[in-house]
Design a protein around this nucleic acid. Structure first.
Lengths: 171, 171
DNA sequence: TTAATATGTCAATAAAACTGACTTAACGGA
DNA sequence: TCCGTTAAGTCAGTTTTATTGACATATTAA
């Protein structure tokens, strides 16, 4: 890594190194972050997509299919396969929207809630440990940097417009 | 979301919310982070795996196949397909190890370097913008939190033992 | 009434990964 | 020198995950 002399001579190298470390931190953290849930998902014959669906439905009870699609940014068909499984196996419940009866509002069943807790537990523990170790001030910095990487649309989700920034629907 | 009264009454809810926001920040940031390179990869008929291989070979010139496998944590067969393509199309060069002639040391060709720069450019810009916006102090916090999420093994890569913490081999 | 929307489904692919067994070449210690 | 181990590569078959594009149904809203 850059020592002090390098720092004086070539400040651009440091910057480049700093950015590349950022790239790698993101890669390693995400790889491990998903890995801790993957083990458990296997036991249910589910994949990461199932986890994501369960997670975001848990976070946004009564979310519509199209809102879920806009979060996950996958195709309708891909969601359909995963969602269909989860509904058939009793993890997710669909109810017809009250204002708009074309919508299918998604919520977790008790069974789904239980699986969600189980799946996310290890991930939460991983983040909790990192937060604790780093301290409150670092956590604030972490949040700032991460938010800075998001597009306008996603940044909104972290405002005060509900957990994931979707207008909640009654159901 | 937690309002002030909730905050007083139920501090655990806030903590839970904080952790979930961490999970989501990671999800959204990583999703967008990979997306900016995906567009470009398509033009070469490459996938994310190709990018990762190119990236880590660029970062660790002369890396061995097995060290690359231990970073990517994919199977030999998966790497083989991707690596084979990159070699055949002239992005990566293999040279026999000098000390250990069983090894195939990997380096990028000029063409490979060019592709790497092109691919990583947008990702670097994304991180650079976030860093700039957040400020140096926040960046330090970001690094601390991210490092805290890594396992012992990966944390070493961010020490002073070469870019990715692998002992470099001559070639 | 009619265009647009929300959802779901069909069929056919594509790609990206996996497993497990096996080969070849080279290393390194006994 | 012999032999077990390691590094790399390959074969065959399979699974997972996602894709595209077309189409059907019910519902909404102008």
């Amino acid at each position: 890594m850059a020592d002090i002399s390098t720092r004086k001579v070539n400040p651009l190298f440091l910057r480049e190194e700093e950015l590349r470390q950022g790239i790698e931190l993101l890669f390693y953290a995400y790889r491990d972050f998903t890995a801790v849930a993957d083990q458990m998902l296997e036991q249910y014959n589910f994949g990461r997509a199932h986890h994501r669906v369960i997670y975001f439905v848990s976070r946004n009870p009564g979310i519509t299919v199209s809102d879920l699609l806009s979060i996950l940014k996958i195709t309708k068909q891909s969601l359909s396969r995963v969602l269909g499984q989860l509904v058939r196996e009793g993890f997710i419940e669909q109810r017809t929207g009250l204002q708009d009866r074309r919508q299918r509002l998604l919520t977790l069943t008790e069974k789904g809630e239980a699986l969600e807790r189980e799946l996310t537990e290890k991930q939460r523990a991983l983040i909790a440990a990192a937060y604790r170790e780093a301290g409150a001030e670092s956590v604030e910095g972490f949040r700032k940097v991460m938010l800075g990487m998001l597009g306008e649309e996603d940044r909104k989700r972290f405002g005060d417009d509900g957990p994931t920034g979707l207008r909640q629907r009654a159901g």
